[in-house]
Design a protein around this nucleic acid. Structure first.
Lengths: 342, 342
DNA sequence: TATCATTGCGTGCGCGTGAACGCAATATGT
DNA sequence: ACATATTGCGTTCACGCGCACGCAATGATA
């Protein structure tokens, strides 16, 4: 059976309240007595009981705010699912979670939403941020007021956020390069399509891919990086253009979105077999291209955990006072083929 | 704020004890009153508070037994880690977990260990079983006595176990086949090395692989399945023999253990580049072959979750009375390359 | 010396739930 | 008719913890 405060109190010959003050450094206690109690507690292997603590804290309950921008994409649906599961879990321990979904990326409205969450009594906030100076300042402001902020999916570099939960995008580009190098026959050419030139994640993936692929296959030329601005029509146009120009194109790496456009172009030109596609956009919508064999690999972010973890980390910080172990909590880089989808 | 029994009691005009009896079907209550209370609780969205419940149940505490056979393998180390994490989590809610590790597979001693766990007061048991009639009978006996049993990693078919947590071995063979078909050049031959002919999992993987690979690549001949009985020396001998016989061997699928033996043989014959190896034995020990490029893919079981989930499922059943959602809780089929190891 | 602040510790309440107990009102058996 | 179950419900305690409060002893100040 687990050790309780009462048992420690008896062992130390003091009252439970004294043990409480000793272990939680509440002051108003003789230093020697406190030391002795801490030693005894340590020897007995004391671990505070969550149930007792949760009940005692029930009055001034913990509230966690979750702010998700661009919540209407298939990927974010996974994220939201994870966040809702985490909510169910911590609410059963008496905490409260407010999930606010925004349709698009808008720094101004994100700042506004953060302030609203604070007014609603949030003790901690998790958000998917955009790269914006005002948002960064707001995050710092919250951190100063002792309201921890966790970024997920995307990060705000150099801000006072507690930690970041998401993918190691550079490494995810390297995974794609390794796979591409494995499946391409000798010679031929590879096209890289990214999303936005200034998106930090897209840039990282692209560079990770380029660097690693060059190391692995010097027989294959990598064509210039093109940008589709996460748009399928754009991706389709780019693909068609390159197919016209390079008839020995054998691989396409898609660092962001645009799977449908690329596949449509390949299909129309009858090049689906010759050109092998690897994409980073693992969504329920794109999975069917895997099933049909039009994409070889999808490299995924574990969206579910990206929603789940930030809430749990905030809860543990606010409830147990436990800091996250790492500043960067990278989620698994998942490789999906048509066979391991479920 | 969450709804409490007291609030429901006030809304229904009865006492808290009556609400308790109504919601938990304890009898000794007027059926009409019980119905009304249940309706009100439903409307108010009542969810029992875990903290309160855990505290109240602290006296006759839940004890979960975990029995792991062949605990000294690297894979099982992951499993044990998952089980220990789950233990830490449920112990903070007042439950108790006893983890018993056995060095080898031995049905007789497993039966014995189960009885000991029962005597130690376990209300539920998770175990890695071997396929044995006596063990199966013991599992059924426990189930009859209302002590739920969950199998993990390996299953006992047709027994009264509550559910099975582990890999879909057939599908994992298909994943290997898909990858192999992707990376092998035209023509050539493939060798399949399995572990034990009568192991259910090994058989499943092998057959899944054979069936799918035949569908995908009719230009490549698959040689007979050989068995290494999970032994590296045996695997090495088999590989050397086949290399002598078939100089156009280009792929080896290793459905069970033996990675070191196979790699050693290939190295000595200077065939590491020509012959591409895919294995199902994802362990920390084998990861270095991935890093060195001697294995292309490792297809993994998520050992951590195989240890974590059974404990949590038993806890939820014993604590909340919640049955597992599915009889087969398949863990993710993980594809590892040298780039997504962390 | 009288008054008040500070230090060191014990006590008690409340959180939500399960379960034992208790007490009427009614039902059953003799 | 009376003793004894059974039913239907309220009451109370225990669980482990945080925290407010209270009391005594000591120290500081007037």
């Amino acid at each position: 059976m687990a050790v309780t405060l009462q048992q420690i109190a008896e062992a130390a010959g003091v009252s439970r309240g004294t043990v409480d003050r000793a272990l939680n450094n509440r002051g108003r206690i003789n230093a020697e007595v406190a030391d002795r109690i801490r030693r005894i507690a340590d020897e007995m292997g004391y671990q505070p009981n969550r149930a007792g603590r949760a009940l005692a804290m029930a009055k001034r309950s913990i509230t966690i705010g979750v702010l998700i921008q661009a919540a209407n994409t298939p990927f974010m649906a996974n994220v939201i699912e994870g966040a809702e599961d985490a909510r169910a879990e911590v609410e059963r321990l008496g905490a409260k979670v407010i999930i606010r979904k925004m349709e698009d990326f808008d720094a101004g409205r994100a700042v506004e939403a953060m302030r609203e969450l604070k007014k609603a009594g949030c003790n901690g906030i998790a958000l998917v941020p955009v790269d914006d100076e005002r948002l960064k300042e707001t995050v710092n402001e919250f951190a100063d007021e002792n309201i921890p902020v966790i970024t997920f999916n995307s990060d705000i570099e150099g801000s006072g956020r507690l930690c970041f939960v998401g993918q190691d995008t550079w490494q995810s580009g390297r995974v794609a390069a390794g796979l591409m190098a494995d499946i391409l026959p000798a010679d031929g050419k590879v096209l890289v399509i990214s999303g936005y030139p200034k998106s930090y994640g897209h840039k990282n993936r692209t560079n990770g891919f380029l660097k690693e692929f060059a190391d692995l296959r010097d027989d294959i030329q990598v064509l210039d990086v093109q940008y589709d601005f996460d748009d399928n029509q754009m991706a389709e146009m780019i693909t068609k253009g390159m197919l016209r120009e390079y008839e020995d194109l054998t691989g396409i790496y898609l660092a962001a979105s645009g799977v449908e456009g690329v596949c449509k172009a390949l299909e129309e030109q009858g090049m689906s077999n010759q050109v092998k596609v690897i994409s980073n956009d693992l969504t329920a919508r794109n999975v069917r291209y895997l099933e049909e064999g039009k994409i070889r690999f999808l490299i995924g972010q574990d969206g579910y955990r990206q929603g789940y973890e930030p809430v749990m980390l905030l809860f543990e910080k606010l409830f147990d006072g436990k800091e996250p172990e790492k500043e960067f909590a990278y989620t698994e880089i998942v490789i999906k083929t048509r066979y391991n989808l479920a």
